[in-house]
Design a protein around this nucleic acid. Structure first.
Length: 343
RNA sequence: GCAGGAAUGGCGGAGUGGUCAAUCGCGGCAGACUGUAAAUCUGCUCCCUUCGGGGUUCAUUGGUUCAAAUCCAAUUUCCUGCA
């Protein structure tokens, strides 16, 4: 897939948060039909740092990955680690200041430094830093989050244009994140203001499901309706296969979720043979099941191994089981996307 | 044969008079996970249950006591020394 075509058809990006899709080699990743991956600015900033990744020639060279790389800005981590109090740190108008819980090193993530780091990673598609918060926030908090997200997006764009020459000179795309939580007028305002600044893509930010697990479709629709039709729409963190089917109908073309890899590690495998599509390979019923995980799947795992074997590997804790499960789950998603693209 | 020591739920191992159906770990059964602090976390795991509770347990048998997995006696088995 060429970068210029990104988001014209549906695309699913697995999360390679720290520079690897967990448990997979780059070749195994390619073999699932994956064309784009997501890495995380904050994680790579803290583990490698800007100077080191620059010296190493960027994440694509490091990973030997010739596909597309999208870098998440760190906005979600601002929420999940700092806002929620899991990490010591503060979020302020200039960004986020926080201490690494492992090294104690102090970091300052600003809209500008996020862009710098994403450039150092040599990402193809950058994401503006956003102020992501918990799902059930007050209107006042949501307003503040929207204001900051817009202000930071502006600063990211300015920095990207002035320091690096923007999309024209770098050949990279810059996408933004729409916040506003459950307040549809705030979603609309955020979407419209970001659209007037102008980005190559518009990402649905915040939480995609309620606590009950229902998709926030009205919020997602609001973002689609208030952003340019000719730019890609990325539903960040979506989702279960059934969620992707639904959300893609709204007009979102780009998806990522940790479910595909995390569930694989936890023994939840996707299978069209099973009601609700989820086969829990560790369950006793698969101990002697010699069928493949999914009778319709063409992945390396399904073509070569039985449910009983994967079940056994999980039972004894062999890492190969995790690798085979991840290969399958990711291929399941890519086949889902291929199927949806054909319709 | 003599002298010590030990016997607890599928396993390992706490508990040494009442708050013990009995900490905990493993194993077992199931569930959760949606821009990854996650190869993680949660629940259940003697029997019955209308989930409130009820019934039988800590080698076996008998005893002491208001009350025993815990104290005493005998028996059985195992371990360690000495012969």
């Amino acid at each position: 897939m060429e970068l210029k075509d990104f988001g014209k058809t549906l695309v699913f990006m697995p999360d390679a948060t720290r520079g690897a899709v967990r448990a997979l080699t780059t070749q195994q990743l390619k073999d699932t039909g994956t064309e784009a991956i997501v890495t995380n600015t904050l994680h790579l900033l803290m583990s490698l740092g800007e100077e080191k990744i620059k010296k190493l020639g960027g994440i694509k060279k490091l990973m030997n990955w010739d596909g597309i790389v999208l870098t998440d800005s760190g906005g979600f981590q601002v929420f999940s680690l700092i806002h929620s109090g899991k990490w010591k740190g503060v979020v302020h108008d200039n960004g986020a200041t926080f201490k690494s819980p492992t090294t104690g090193k102090l970091y300052e993530l600003t809209p500008e430094s996020s862009i710098d780091m994403q450039m150092a990673i040599n990402s193809d598609i950058l994401v503006t830093l956003d102020d992501c918060r918990k799902s059930d926030l007050s209107r006042k908090d949501a307003e503040e989050s929207v204001e900051r997200t817009i202000a930071w997006a502006k600063r990211c764009k300015k920095h990207f244009d002035e320091v690096y020459g923007g999309t024209e000179k770098t050949g990279k795309l810059l996408s933004c994140v729409v916040q506003g939580a459950k307040f549809l007028d705030l979603r609309e305002r955020c979407a419209k203001e970001l659209s007037s600044i102008g980005f190559d893509g518009y990402n649905f930010g915040g939480f995609v499901v309620t606590e009950k697990g229902d998709l926030v479709l009205d919020e997602m629709r609001s973002v689609i309706e208030n952003t340019p039709t000719d730019k890609f729409k990325y539903a960040m963190g979506v989702g279960k296969p059934s969620d992707i089917r639904v959300v893609s109908k709204l007009g979102y073309k780009v998806f990522d979720t940790v479910l595909v890899t995390r569930n694989a590690r936890h023994g939840s495998l996707f299978s069209s043979d099973i009601k609700d599509e989820v086969l829990r390979i560790k369950n006793a019923e698969f101990a002697l099941d010699e069928r493949p995980i999914d009778s319709l799947c063409d992945c390396y795992t399904c073509k070569n191994y039985s449910r009983a074997y994967i079940h056994h590997l999980f039972r004894v804790g062999e890492m190969t089981g995790v690798t085979l499960a991840t290969i399958h789950n990711l291929r399941y998603y890519q086949r889902l996307i291929e199927g949806l693209n054909q319709n």
